[in-house]
Design a protein around this nucleic acid. Structure first.
Lengths: 369, 369
DNA sequence: GTGAAAGCGCTAACAG
DNA sequence: CTGTTAGCGCTTTCAC
């Protein structure tokens, strides 16, 4: 891009040494030259404002210092946090990051990933769902890959994943111990292993408190207006569970927020009438009137851990080792959305009115399962 | 990264042609070969799964298909939107994007940008405040640069910028015409040209409605707990403007949200007691109980326009033209946070109680300036 | 239609 | 300590 490109050759000529010596200088091999030569090269480089061409270096060394990060959409806050985690780590290790978003229209994500490989990136962090066969073909080409917050069944590969098990159990247990007697679970369609896993965790954790937790699980249709589907399911929940203190756990934050809207739109209060918690905090949380209780996915950490895994694998070169799986722990944040001060708690309970709409009855009497 | 790298040489040998011919094939110059040769090469490439090395191509062609995007922090929603705008456009033009964040610790952003240039990126989109001299030195090196949502005084350079003038005027005018008689302006310290500009726009637009709009402008200290500073200023505002219907315009969305919290924490309602609007929507907006009125920065568009500008300049090569400045228009969204239904409006007005805390008086009587 | 040869800017044997 | 030479993988004259 510079007007007249300064090359190593020009430096060598001006400094009256060979390209080799300049190259040695560039690579810090000062043992191989006199102090005087070193100084001269130094001066010429400064004078000419010479900068080595990373492309040529890369071609020669088979090292580009480039990694690719493949995400669905950078505008999703968790994705942004993950990317930042990756970038922060990479910068410290002198890598730079090429960003690929997979939910673009008109462009095949596989083409984009292939383009990364053609560029000789030294590794890939995948954080959006990928075709298993495709990823497999990549690993067979010895492309170094780390999966960040996604999994590919039957593929042994470096992975950073969230362990929701303990957190889910604890969240549910704490909600119950707050005095709620039903924790319902709302999930989008169970199309991914991760969602199925989360549901399983919910069911398992709920067993200690409720006899048939399956009845408390709602699969919400994946519609544009999640609002409507949520409203329907919520109504059903309320209907079936009149007289109980209800709490909701949402599989993800979007669903949680849809539910929050539904709850408000029904004229119900959080948490007095319905408590709500969920997974992941999109950063909005602190902006609500009271915070929402969430199991917070440590996206930044997932990113930085994934980057670390990748950089390690890259630097190992031929000396490869078995795939590593890192499980990071989410943080549990219990906040106002699931905590009811004692005096207000004793007065509330939801019932349905004639039109099958929820209304609030002031006298609460605890019932058994 | 592949186990055994397939090169153009291997392809040429297997196909019994020269590297030249294969290269011609790769570059679509089919006129220069027989149909038969073409087919043979095609087959060998498929069989070998050959992929050209983009590094080598770039070295030869002086084209990397890479651009750098320099932002402060990808976790800021507007920044993410901008990056997405850039990426979306670039992908369509077969560019890929290297992401640089400038608010990293321990790493000089200039080093990072220099690293991009060393990589022979074909251009740079800068969207975080930069040192003027540094950018100037880059342009002198003929680095192609587009500024996105930031400006550098006295530097003629391609730029995409938001024009807040009309939008600010309209927003303020509409708030007044809703029936509020004071629109106050809250801004962080006036350390940047952009903030000063915005304040100027506020003052100008307010003159038509209020005699001394300066009295309605509050510069909030830049502290970690913006909350406290906001609370203080808000109290002052309320004190000085007892008996008026107040609205607030916040210079940015963080400030707006801090103010929202302050308002709620004082037990006041939005918009009945204090209306509030601001600049930019971080995507949280729709999650509030009622939406906030905002002048929404079209970050995605800024990004895509900047990318377009850059790609155009790149493709022009030597045939350069004068710097272009594109002004994009923000969208005005008027929502519940500044709109009071008539019947509730007539009953409200804030006054201070003995302790100098605001309280709500039910009888409102309009006062003149 | 096709290929030999030179070279993009750099690094690394190898030889002094 | 230093330089000569070859070559990374590709493209492009130029010649046949």
């Amino acid at each position: 891009m510079a007007n007249e490109k300064i090359t190593i050759k020009m430096v060598s000529e001006k400094a009256n040494v060979s390209k080799t010596t300049v190259s040695r200088y560039l690579n810090g091999k000062y043992e191989f030259m006199s102090a005087e030569t070193k100084k001269r090269i130094e001066e010429v480089i400064a004078e000419l404002e010479y900068r080595p061409n990373a492309l040529a270096q890369g071609l020669k060394n088979n090292k580009t210092g480039l990694i690719g990060i493949v995400v669905s959409n950078i505008m999703i806050p968790e994705v942004a946090a993950l990317v930042r985690g990756v970038n922060d780590y990479c910068i410290r290790k002198s890598f730079q990051v090429i960003l690929v978003e997979t939910d673009q229209k008109n462009i095949s994500q596989q083409d984009q990933i292939q383009a990364l490989i053609d560029r000789q990136v030294e590794g890939l962090i995948l954080s959006s769902n990928q075709d298993e066969a495709f990823v497999k073909s990549l690993t067979e080409q010895k492309v170094k890959i780390v999966l960040a917050d996604c999994t590919i069944e039957e593929l042994m590969i470096d992975t950073v994943i969230v362990d929701n098990e303990k957190a889910t159990a604890e969240m549910i247990q704490r909600i119950y111990s707050e005095g709620f007697d039903r924790v319902a679970y709302f999930t989008p369609p169970l199309t991914t292993p991760s969602r199925k896993k989360k549901l399983a965790l919910f069911l398992e954790s709920s067993k200690i408190a409720v006899r048939n937790p399956e009845q408390l699980a709602f699969e919400i249709e994946e519609t544009q207006v999640a609002f409507d589907a949520c409203k329907e399911s919520l109504n059903e929940l309320l209907k079936k569970n009149q007289g109980y203190r209800l709490a909701i756990l949402a599989e993800n934050s979007e669903l949680m927020f849809a539910l929050i809207h539904v709850i408000y739109s029904l004229g119900l209060r959080i948490p007095e009438d319905v408590a709500i918690g969920g997974y992941d905090d999109l950063g909005w949380n602190k902006l609500y009137h009271h915070e929402m209780s969430v199991i917070e996915k440590p996206s930044y950490e997932i990113g930085s851990q994934a980057a670390e895994l990748l950089v390690k694998r890259i630097s190992k070169g031929k000396m490869q080792y078995k795939p590593k799986v890192i499980e990071v722990q989410p943080k549990i944040k219990m906040s106002g959305s699931t905590q009811v001060s004692d005096n207000s708690f004793d007065k509330i309970v939801i019932r349905m009115n004639q039109e099958n709409q929820p209304y609030i009855k002031k006298n609460y009497r605890k019932q058994d399962d």
